[in-house]
Simulated scan of single mutants.
Amino acid sequence: MKSTALEIVHRLADWSDWAPFSAAHELAPLVPGVYLAREGADGELVYVGMAGERHGKGIRGRLTVYARGKALASGLG
């Protein structure tokens, strides 16, 4: 049986629970890390991103930039 990309990624690390984007940028941790995006609640994995320090805001800072619509050059924006 062939694994989906999402199944493979899930086996690589412990991940937080999924959250809709409208809530994710407020719930995300203030530390650097990796984040995943998928289409809909049970959709395909469409984006994997990495967030650095971002002035002490980590992943939350990166997702906040997306939420403000200022990341149009990125794959997720």
Rank of each mutant, 00 (worst) to 15 (best):
K2W: 08
K2Q: 09
K2V: 12
S3A: 11
T4R: 02
L6N: 05
E7V: 09
I8H: 08
R11H: 14
L12Q: 09
A13D: 13
D14F: 15
D14H: 10
W15E: 01
W15R: 02
S16L: 08
D17C: 08
D17V: 11
A19F: 12
A19V: 12
P20E: 05
F21H: 03
A23T: 09
A23C: 10
H25Q: 12
E26P: 06
L27M: 15
A28Y: 03
A28G: 01
L30Y: 09
P32H: 03
G33M: 02
G33I: 00
G33K: 01
G33R: 02
L36N: 01
A37M: 08
G40W: 05
G40H: 10
G40F: 14
A41Q: 06
D42C: 08
E44R: 09
G49S: 09
G49W: 00
A51F: 06
E53L: 03
E53A: 03
E53D: 10
H55F: 13
G58N: 00
G58H: 01
I59F: 06
R60V: 09
L63I: 09
Y66N: 03
Y66P: 05
A67M: 01
R68S: 14
R68T: 13
R68H: 15
A71V: 01
L72F: 14
A73N: 13
A73M: 08
A73P: 13
L76M: 08
